[in-house]
């Protein structure tokens, strides 16, 4: 049993109970317009139980209530907690190989047992970041593909007065921003870049430079605006900064999950099972 399975076992069981209950109650079994893509963090059994490409609104609401039992902190700057990500309608641009930006699994990726997204061999990037021997990309390959952007299945945020960290459980991916005025002048290109943070009112602004992308020359500069919502969820708007001009890239909502806690997830264990890494 994988660590991912274990980490969401309880939520999965609860979701299944809710789903089965709804199936048994015809009066409630009204099919809504929402699709499977509207729930990217639901366990596969839940999706399968609600097959047919439709999700019942009641199931969504009951599940939401079930998983959000505890009230969130009222401090708008207290982002500490664990979250699942939920993409805005329309999703996000796909990187080579089908993985979303950040290298996280696409919706239903690892969790649905469809790991190891395929794709063309990437070209080596300047600076030696990309190995010319790499023949797969993304989290499915247990390596970072591109900007580590809050796109993983479960995310834990740790924040204090000095720094903020985003820990993506899948592939144990860590993003790190310090509250500082200036970037590290010695920072070198990396997939997670060099991040500094500041508060703009109660919005956390993260500025990240030196972001490398596997197979793509050069580096990118991103700005993210992170805002805590009344329900505890966290909204993130990401922009690409080109000489001070901000271009929207994507919007992501991190769904607050007080019922979960961080569980170790070692991609390299999965990787060996799928023929990745040491054989």
């Amino acid at each position: 049993m994988s660590a991912r399975w274990r980490s969401h076992r309880r939520a999965g069981l609860c979701a299944c109970v809710v789903a089965v209950g709804l199936w048994a109650m015809p009066a409630m079994a009204q099919v809504g317009a929402a699709t499977l893509d509207d729930i990217v963090d639901a366990p596969p059994q839940f999706k399968e139980a609600l097959s047919g490409g439709k999700i019942k609104p009641q199931a969504l609401e009951l599940t939401r209530q079930n998983i959000q039992g505890a009230p969130p902190s009222k401090d708008p700057r207290d982002l500490n907690g664990m979250y699942n990500f939920l993409r805005a309608p329309g999703g996000a641009p796909r990187a080579p190989g089908g993985a979303p930006p950040g290298g996280g699994a696409p919706s239903g990726g690892y969790a649905a047992g469809r790991a190891v997204p395929g794709g063309p061999p990437p070209r080596a990037a300047p600076g030696g970041l990309a190995s010319p021997r790499v023949s797969n990309v993304g989290a499915g390959a247990c390596v970072i593909n591109t900007f580590a952007g809050l796109t993983s299945y479960s995310t834990t945020i740790l924040i204090n007065a000095r720094q903020v960290l985003f820990l993506m459980e899948e592939n144990h991916l860590l993003r790190w921003a310090t509250f500082a005025d200036k970037h590290d002048p010695a920072a070198k290109p990396s997939f997670t870049g060099d991040s500094i943070a500041r508060w703009d009112g109660d919005t956390l602004v993260i500025d990240t430079t030196q972001v490398a992308t596997r197979g793509k020359p050069g580096t990118d500069h991103y700005v993210e605006r992170v805002t805590k919502q009344a329900d505890g969820n966290v909204a993130i708007e990401r922009f690409r900064d080109t000489d001070g001009q901000l271009t929207p890239v994507e919007k992501v909502t991190l769904r607050w999950r007080p019922d979960l806690h961080y569980v170790e997830d070692i991609c390299e264990d999965f990787g060996e099972a799928f023929g990745i890494g040491y054989q």
Partner: peptide, 14 residues
């Protein structure tokens, strides 16, 4: 990234 460092990523299958 250990798999890059150890060049184990090069063993990835297509």
């Amino acid at each position: 990234i250990c798999l890059d460092r150890e060049n184990l990523a090069g063993k990835l299958k297509q």
